[in-house]
């Protein structure tokens, strides 16, 4: 979800209006993903590093997110989307917002359509640290720790490995996003800014992903010239 600030700057608008314009994209992408049959969608809304932004912008974001969550909660629930918020540990998050996050998670906990994970106040490294702490707290013996058992201690352990990461606005960095889960992910970097990103762009990315050969470090079993389905 990069490019809100640049989007606003190009229009000589305050940065906040870029964030406001992002709301439409978020809803559009959620709907496009759901219709396309995506089962797991994660949005990187706010990183642990974003706290370094100016206080007024952070405050604005918090209010905006709260309004967006409340506005779209019934729609998300009715579409059968299970919503959850990854991170949300910082005490600077306003309690009413945390309450709304918790309420939306409670409300949609039983939904089985698509799982929407909103990474908010998220950092990939801190998730890994959290998993390590959890292992130690549970007294897991050293020899019992392998990749699978480690992953089981990550926040939202049921999240599968990420298949595709789309980073808008042409930025080509990981920026501490779900570090563990993106190990084998395909990456696509469309140049379009997030507020301009629409369902069509999303489907293009999906299409591009379908064309890629995912080998996971092995040899592509379809490399003998057969076309992929």
């Amino acid at each position: 979800m990069d490019g809100n600030g640049r989007w606003a700057a190009r229009r000589s608008l305050p940065r906040t209006s870029g964030h406001r314009a992002a709301e439409t994209t978020v809803i559009d992408v959620i709907e496009a993903a759901r219709t396309a049959g995506v089962k797991w969608l994660s949005l990187y809304a706010f990183s642990t590093e974003n706290w370094q932004r100016p206080g007024a912008e952070v405050d604005f974001l918090m209010r905006l997110v709260r309004r967006v969550v409340r506005k779209h909660a019934p729609m998300l629930h009715l579409r059968g989307i299970r919503c959850r918020f990854l991170g949300v540990t910082d005490p600077r998050i306003p309690p009413p917002l945390a309450r709304d996050f918790a309420d939306l998670m409670t409300l949609t906990a039983e939904n089985r359509g698509m799982t929407l994970t909103v990474a908010f106040d998220h950092g990939g490294r801190s998730d890994i640290v959290a998993a390590a702490r959890s292992l130690i707290r549970n007294g897991v013996p050293t020899e019992a720790v392998d990749e699978r058992s480690f992953a089981a201690h990550l926040p939202f352990a049921d999240t599968p490995d990420v298949d595709l990461v789309i980073r808008t606005s042409g930025e080509q960095r990981i920026s501490n996003f779900m570090l563990w889960q993106v190990a084998y992910a395909e990456w696509i970097f469309p140049p379009v800014l997030w507020p301009d990103f629409r369902a069509a762009h999303f489907l293009e990315c999906l299409h591009a992903y379908q064309q890629r050969d995912r080998r996971f470090g092995g040899v592509n079993p379809n490399a003998n010239g057969e076309r992929r389905p």
């Binding site: 969550v69 309420d103 939306l104 039983e110």
Partner: peptide, 8 residues
């Protein structure tokens, strides 16, 4: 869940 919805 009903309470969460009402609050939201």
């Amino acid at each position: 869940r009903a309470g969460a919805l009402v609050r939201l």
